[in-house]
Design a binder for these strands. Structure first.
Length: 179
DNA sequence: TGCACGATGAAC
DNA sequence: TTCATCGTGCAC
């Protein structure tokens, strides 16, 4: 499998989000096919963590593209994002669900369960995705699919940003967390 | 130094 | 609709 190059992530976040669908997320001996994601467009996007500026937690979002932004949510789950666009722009794509491909145990529907099943935790925060043990790759073979677009989950507080269709998933895939 | 609150998931 | 559970961010 071919690991996605840095240039893949150094592009418009919405394009990266849509292109991540169908790709393989690999961590150690585990692999999952990405079937649902959400785009967080930068400091101006009120639903994005980077909207409150550069902080200890969000500094990875402000860094170079192609790195993982992993944080703990509600004191019990981890969420994984892929940092996009040029350094300093602070945008990212949240991985919400994967389809089990290899050595994945348990449910993978939802960002928290996805990380649990893939063995992803805070140790992988800021990890470069152009590495040998944790990366995203072009799948060996891929059949055509339709991309569905819906509002993001759990960001009702973000005003008009909450209404935008920035969640993307593979239409008809049974591993998508929510329709 | 203290405290309110989540880009969740599961139970009721 | 409620709750578990804790790191982060900002108020004091």
């Amino acid at each position: 499998m071919r690991t996605l190059p840095r240039s893949f992530y150094d592009r418009d976040t919405i394009l990266v989000a849509e292109d991540l669908l169908g790709k393989y997320l690999v961590h150690a001996d585990r692999a999952g096919r990405i079937v649902e994601v959400e785009a967080y467009l930068g400091p101006h996007d009120l639903a994005a963590h980077s909207a409150r500026g550069l902080t200890e937690r969000t500094k990875v979002m402000f860094g170079p593209p192609g790195h993982a932004y992993v944080y703990m949510i509600y004191g019990m789950y981890y969420c994984m994002n892929v940092v996009t666009e040029r350094e300093g722009h602070a945008s990212a794509v949240l991985l919400r669900a994967v389809e089990p491909i290899q050595n994945v145990n348990g449910r993978t529907q939802g960002p928290g369960l996805l990380c649990k099943a893939m063995g992803i935790d805070r140790r992988l925060n800021a990890h470069d995705l152009l590495s040998d043990d944790f990366y995203i790759a072009e799948p060996p073979k891929e059949k055509p699919f339709t991309i569905a677009k819906r509002p993001r989950i759990g960001v009702e507080y973000a005003g008009r940003w909450a209404k935008r269709h920035l969640r993307f998933y593979i239409k008809g895939n049974p591993f998508v967390s929510r329709l």
